[in-house]
Amino acid sequence: MAGLVVLIVLVAALVMWWRLNVSIVRLHSRVDEAWSDVLAQLQRRADLVPSLVELVRGYVTHEETVLRQMVEAWSGLLHAQDPGRAADAEAELSRAVHATYAVSERYPQLRASSNFLHLQRELVHTEDKVVASRRFYNGAVREFNSHIATWPGSSVAHRHGWQTAEFFTATTAAADPPVVDLGR
């Protein structure tokens, strides 16, 4: 009888180990999925920037610095590989885009342009989507990290070489871009 009990305990432990590993893999794939969602939203946002630059350039003649900053931020975002850098680049781009909105206040023709209004609306919408995807990603990372940081998940994670994932958090002062009011 004792042999059977030992056997059952062993099998139960193995199953538990296997289940823990499966749940870690599942949580990690969720982090990956959330990260690809963040990248998709960032790409979507980045795709709008060249149109904005071109449009603004057509109306604005003495604001090259603002446009250059936007192009640099855009380029930085396209080349960002890890969550930390991507978050910094995204914050930088937000700052540059909002600086462009501020500049546009001085050009009534630009403000009145339907293309500009449409683009501005699209950018704000995409910005909302970026925020949502960032929340999803950070939630997935939080869950994954807490799972592999607490026992018994920590033992399984250590054995299989899982490491904590990085949060999508900007380290620069531009982390909280100003709010744009579209008159809604």
Partner: peptide, 9 residues
Amino acid sequence: ETDALHIFS
């Protein structure tokens, strides 16, 4: 998930 978090801001 992102859509849900976009709606539940």
